[in-house]
């Protein structure tokens, strides 16, 4: 649930149900969580899977510190990071990924993979992800492949000169 809340802070999405606590519902449409961020983070190839338990503990520790600093009373029925209001989750992630944070590498990595789940569906075959309506690729408007699963764009050019070329262009087509 904590990882879901983190991923939802990176690419927010709509709640999966009315009592969804991890997904804050800060944006319309599916976000990183619906796109499979946790599945991606748990994929051994990513290299973070065995560390995720420690990462969750650390994130919740930072959430408790953040809550104390800001005088926030957290609902104890969910992990501290999940209990943070969305704006505070966002502020905390900004701090954790900021240039000054000692452990920023780990938080940046977590953010990058959360983003990748949404933008590239890196845990799925791309063509299959599109076919299944993957929320991130759909949000981008990523085009469907041809029937053989390969992309081709035969319509690709305005087919006319749209600027003057540089006067010092050499015969090889390079700058002088």
């Amino acid at each position: 649930m904590t990882l879901e809340a983190f991923a939802d802070t990176i690419v927010p999405g709509e709640k999966r149900s009315v009592d969804d606590r991890a997904v804050a519902g800060a944006a319309a449409g599916g976000g990183a969580v619906a796109s499979g961020a946790v599945e991606l983070l748990e994929t051994p190839a990513v290299g973070l899977a065995t560390a995720l338990g420690d990462i969750v503990d650390a994130l919740n520790g930072h959430a408790l510190e953040h809550a104390a600093e800001h005088g926030l009373a957290l609902d104890g029925s969910v992990p501290p990071f999940v209990a943070l209001p969305f704006a505070h989750r966002t502020a905390l992630v900004q701090t954790l990924t900021g240039p000054a944070h000692q452990q920023r590498d780990i938080w940046v990595a977590l953010a990058l993979f959360s983003n990748m789940a949404f933008d590239t569906a890196a845990h799925l075959h791309t063509a299959e992800a599109i076919e299944a309506g993957h929320p991130g690729l759909a949000t981008l408007g990523f085009a469907k492949p041809d029937a053989d699963g390969v992309w081709r764009f035969p319509d690709y050019s305005y087919r006319r000169q749209l600027a003057n070329v540089h006067p010092n262009t050499t015969a090889s087509g390079s700058p002088a």
């Binding site: 890196a122 845990h123 075959h125 791309t126 063509a127 492949p145 699963g149």
Partner: peptide, 9 residues
């Protein structure tokens, strides 16, 4: 061998 695919691997 060159895939049109973002799948890890």
């Amino acid at each position: 061998d060159f895939d049109h695919d973002y799948l890890l691997g």
